[in-house]
């Protein structure tokens, strides 16, 4: 599977793509009514990002903009959005109402997720201390220098491979308001070089007092993640636990069931899994009966078995 669709909303606001160069901007939505998507360097409208941003700032009262989506920036498979981050940092005073930011809303037809170049996102978060929601897609070159952010409630990193530095940087950050953390760990093939032990600062919950939803998903080591979660202190404060999209087999699921009780969860998401029917049934017996909503949809988790018996299993979103 790949990323096939752009965000249709951010921060509860419907996404709206700011018109390209030459297109009319006289009938735009109210500045605070949509999540503005800025694209540049797109096919047939080869505008530099700085020019797109300048047109946006001229056409829209940025004082009222609440949500911003950074889409294509041209050659995203070769170039990190450094210039974009710098421009956004510099423009921080012009966006006093900005509460949500997503960087890298590119679909497969534009650039496969693991091909998207990123850079350190910490300067953006530091420049916008009122930001409540931040998301990034693409793991190549992605960094997350440890920080303290008092307002951030939702943090998302969608990757085909999340660098260990990002896992550690998030783990070392103080995020007292964070309610929802969503990390796509990916595979070593695409730079996902963390190990389950690197998740410990997150799983301890020490710096995440308000965490309610935790997703550690799309992982090739989903079994090890599940085993680590089974004994994690943070779990007792969660409402939603999401270990979906990865290579979760019976081994990980049994470890999860053998750990602390999960019956307090509202939802356990395990879709895209490689579980046997027997273990899936055990999960249902244990949790559905206790009122937990469980997603066990196998989805497109298909195994390939080679002649020599080697079995290949895949994460949902890789390359």
């Amino acid at each position: 599977m790949t990323i096939g669709e752009h965000l249709d909303a951010l921060h509860g606001l419907p996404a709206f793509t700011f018109p390209g160069p030459g297109a009319p901007t006289d009938r735009l939505p109210e500045p605070d009514s949509v999540a503005w998507r800025l694209n540049s360097g797109v096919y047939g409208a080869d505008e530099a990002w700085a020019d797109t941003f300048a047109r946006f700032r001229a056409a829209v009262d940025t004082n009222r903009v609440r949500a911003l989506i950074i889409g294509a920036w041209g050659d995203a498979y070769d170039r990190a959005p450094t210039e974009i981050f710098e421009a956004l940092v510099e423009a921080r005073d012009a966006f006093p109402a900005l509460r949500a930011l997503f960087v890298g809303d590119l679909v497969m037809e534009e650039c496969e997720i693991s091909w998207i170049h990123q850079t350190d996102v910490a300067p953006l978060l530091n420049a916008y201390p009122a930001l409540e929601e931040f998301g990034v897609r693409g793991g190549t070159g992605l960094e997350f220098t440890a920080l303290r952010h008092g307002a951030l409630r939702r943090l998302v990193a969608e990757t085909g491979g999340l660098p260990v530095g990002v896992v550690r940087g998030i783990g070392a950050s103080d995020l007292p308001a964070l309610e929802h953390l969503d990390l796509w760990l990916g595979t070593p093939d695409y730079g996902g070089d963390s190990e389950a032990a690197d998740l410990e600062p997150i799983l301890s919950g020490a710096r995440l007092p308000r965490l309610r939803q935790l997703a550690l998903r799309n992982s090739e080591m989903q079994d090890a993640v599940a085993a680590a979660v089974a004994a994690a202190p943070v779990v007792e404060r969660l409402e939603v636990l999401d270990l979906s999209m990865g290579v979760l087999t019976d081994e990980g699921a049994v470890a999860l069931l053998s750990g602390q009780p999960l019956t307090h969860l509202k939802k356990l998401d395990l879709h895209h899994n490689y579980l046997s029917e027997a273990v899936a049934e055990r999960i249902r017996q244990t949790l559905v009966a206790a009122g937990v909503e469980v997603d066990l949809d196998r989805d497109d988790a298909d195994e390939d078995t080679e002649d020599d018996g080697t079995v290949w299993r895949y994460v949902a979103v890789g390359e």
């Binding site: 096939g4 669709e5 752009h6 797109v42 096919y43 047939g44 294509a72 679909v107 497969m108 037809e109 534009e110």
Partner: peptide, 13 residues
Amino acid sequence: ERWVPKASQAGRA
């Protein structure tokens, strides 16, 4: 031909 990134429907190009 240059690849025109296609629009998508229900997550598919």
